[in-house]
Amino acid sequence: MESPSAESFLRQMATLQALERELTTLSQSGRLRGSLHLAQGQEAVPAGACAALQPSDYLTATYRGHGYVLAKGCSLDGVLAEILGKATGLACGKGGKMHLFDLSHGLLGTNGIVGAGVGSVVGAALTAKMDRNGRVGLTVFGDGAINQGHVHEAMNMAALYQLPVIFLCENNLYAEMTPLHRSHGNVNLLERASSYGMDAIQVDGNDPFKVYEVVKKAVDLGRSGGGPTFIEALTYRTVGHYQADAGTSYRTLEEIEEWRQNSPIKRLSARIGPDAEKIIDEADELVHEAVERALGSPDPDPATALQGVFA
């Protein structure tokens, strides 16, 4: 599998950027309620990682995982309608922003509980191994989640049973609003993962090509029966943890500005040259039209609240 082109990566990343911009507008105008967790500044990780997966491979992500959902191939219309709580959403409006599932694209869920989706992917990888179906599972979580016991339990078991899993940790230096050194006894995340007996690799998470390359290697290892890999993608969230957090009370404006100037979209645009602007404009338009369609979609019938508790 060849690496996608720079243009293709930019299209993916710009779509996520546009989606988050639209959602911010909707949230600020009160048309979108509840928590909204954005990933601006981190767009290269999902673009690079998902390009190394097949459509049938398994994925779980976090409440900040809209980029993974789109890059895995899930329908933009279905995602937007779900985020807006519409009947036409991926889960008919029952899951919402933090619970995006699309089994037809191997998406076993974004998750509202920090670190909790990791076990599902390890379980899916167990299915892959037992059924010998050749699939792998990728789970993405943040540097905060690596303090959760469940993440460590899952890493240990994936290594123990030699399951085809990629543990992709987005290290954006802050667990919600707390910097690493205030929440991690050992800030060397590679050491913590490698202690379970798997390869642990660090990568520049703001370069989609580099992310693709390490994830591809881990995917190949998993598919060939070589077990799990841990990847730490260094990145930075240039916005707050969620819509109510400006992100400036625990970080300096200079720090944020420096990362903004070096954002993955800016870096990639510079590499592409004049065509980049056109790609970004197209993505903006595509997403804007999808938002209009989603806003015009019907709300769920209230009677459906009682339906679908059991299979």
Partner: peptide
């Protein structure tokens, strides 16, 4: 399958396995 002593861990894994056909 004998598991380590990790109830959340093996329960989570069972959920993922159940979602994918087992």
């Amino acid at each position: 399958i004998d598991t380590p002593i990790v109830e959340p861990g093996f329960t989570g894994i069972a959920i993922g396995a159940a979602m994918t056909g087992l």
